[in-house]
C-alpha cells in the first residue's frame, strides 16, 4: 500500500477529534497489524470504494471514548452504551469524509460507505482484503485510540 495514503487519515483523525471534542491527540508510529483483534472496546469500520477498495477503522478503549464523548456532549458519560457507539460511528464517518477530501486533492477519488460499529472486549475488526493493515496509535489526555487503514490498489 502506498504509505502516502495514510497521512490523510492521520490528519483527518486529528482534525475531527479537535473540532468535535477539543481533543489534542498525537499520532504515534504506524505499524503493520497482524491480527484481527481490536485494540479497543468500541470500533467503527467503513468500507471504501472507487479508484481503490479498502476499509478504515477506528477503535477506542472504553475509558478513552467515554472521556471523548463526554467532551462532545458537554456532559459526563459513564458507560459505553448506544449513544457512545453512535458517536463512534459518526466520528469514523467524519474521518472518512475528511480523509477522502484530502485524497481527492491527491487525485484519488474514493466513496465511503455507512459505518458499522462493533462493541465488546476482544472483538475482531474485519478488513476487506489480505493486503497489509497499517495501524496508527494515537495518544491524548483522554487516553489512546487506534486507526487502521487497509487499501488495496
Amino acid at each position: 500500500m502506498d504509505v502516502r495514503l495514510i497521512n490523510p487519515f492521520i490528519d483527518a483523525t486529528l482534525h475531527v477529534l479537535k473540532m468535535m471534542a477539543s481533543v489534542e491527540a498525537k499520532a504515534g508510529k504506524p505499524y503493520i497489524k497482524k491480527t484481527e483483534c481490536a485494540a479497543g472496546d468500541v470500533s467503527a469500520v467503513i468500507g471504501l470504494t472507487g479508484e481503490a477498495n479498502g476499509t478504515i477503522s477506528i477503535t477506542f478503549p472504553a475509558k478513552s471514548i467515554m472521556a471523548i464523548v463526554s467532551r462532545m456532549f458537554g456532559e459526563t458519560i459513564t458507560r459505553v452504551d448506544g449513544e457512545v457507539s453512535d458517536a463512534v460511528g459518526e466520528i469514523a464517518n467524519m474521518i472518512s469524509g475528511q480523509a477522502r477530501q484530502k485524497l481527492e486533492k491527491m487525485g484519488r477519488v474514493l466513496q465511503g460507505a455507512i459505518p458499522s460499529v462493533i462493541m465488546g472486549k476482544d472483538h475482531q475488526i474485519k478488513h476487506i482484503s489480505s493486503h497489509p493493515i497499517v495501524a496508527v496509535p494515537f495518544e491524548s489526555d483522554d487516553g489512546g485510540f487506534t486507526i487502521e487503514v487497509c487499501i488495496e490498489e
Binding site: M94, G97, R100, Q101, V109, G112
Partner: peptide
C-alpha cells in the same frame, strides 16, 4: 450538513 465534501 455532511462529511461528503468532495467536489462532485
Amino acid at each position: 450538513v455532511t462529511a461528503e465534501g468532495q467536489k462532485d
